[in-house]
Amino acid sequence: MFPTPIQNTSRRTYIAYQVLLPVTLILWLLPLLGVALTSIRPASDITAGNYWGWPSSFSLIENYRAVFTNSPLAAYILNSFKVTIPTVIGAIALSSLTGFALAIYKFRANLLIFFLFVAGNFIPFQILMVPVRDLSIQMGVYNSVWGLILFHIAFQTGFCTLFMRNFIRGLPFELIEAARIEDVSEFRIFWFIVLPLMRPALAALAVLVFTFVWNDYFWATVLTQGAHAQPVTAGLHALNGEWIAAWHLVSAGSIVAALPPVLMFFLMQKHFIAGLTLGAVKS
């Protein structure tokens, strides 16, 4: 069996494994631990250079309260939801339709269109920065939640289509043929037969897209400015002072901002892991 279970290896390897695992784990989590620790420090610790030591006092409640009372962070978080939820719905709705079309219908340009969707994933979005900004200005959606939603839907749909198409391909085609014989309209086939079977794929994609879009920083800073439209990833800097970077508040804000995707992950862990491998292998 490969890989060999660690219990069956030599004693030396086993001990090395037992020692290295926790060490690597701590090393790996060090930045996160640092953020968590900083988020409960008072500002004076940071000015005094106490970055990694024991906090001189604990200001857990003060810091987390300050995040919500002294800054528009709550508005930024609300913006994140306003961007993320419509994007998830839009991208999944569109891609289940495109996925259905590309998986079920045989037409000449089928493969070409499919490749176009896939190729979209290979374009580094940094090179789209200037054209997309100009486009959003001309469309009048620059600096609005709608601009972000439209762009994210457009960009996520490519990946989602790949995912959906492969998933629907895996469904038994006989189901669709049987329905056609019964003279069921094509849309009703999609709605009543394919869509219910796609539920695991929908759930997995929803989690993935939610995480991608929630964590987006690039487009949040390119397409929006200010508390009326910017999501929380870009809004964390509002916690800083005019002269001083308030790392204790930024850390607390980061942890608050990271909670929704983390919660989403734990609630839907099963789908998330399924989603990572779904469509990767075709049987």
Binding site: P42, A43, S44, T47, A48, E242, W243, I244
Partner: peptide, 13 residues
């Protein structure tokens, strides 16, 4: 430095 240095220094003791 500018006078804005005073506030964090006071905070730090």
């Amino acid at each position: 430095m500018g006078n804005f240095i005073v506030e964090p220094l006071r905070e730090a003791g």
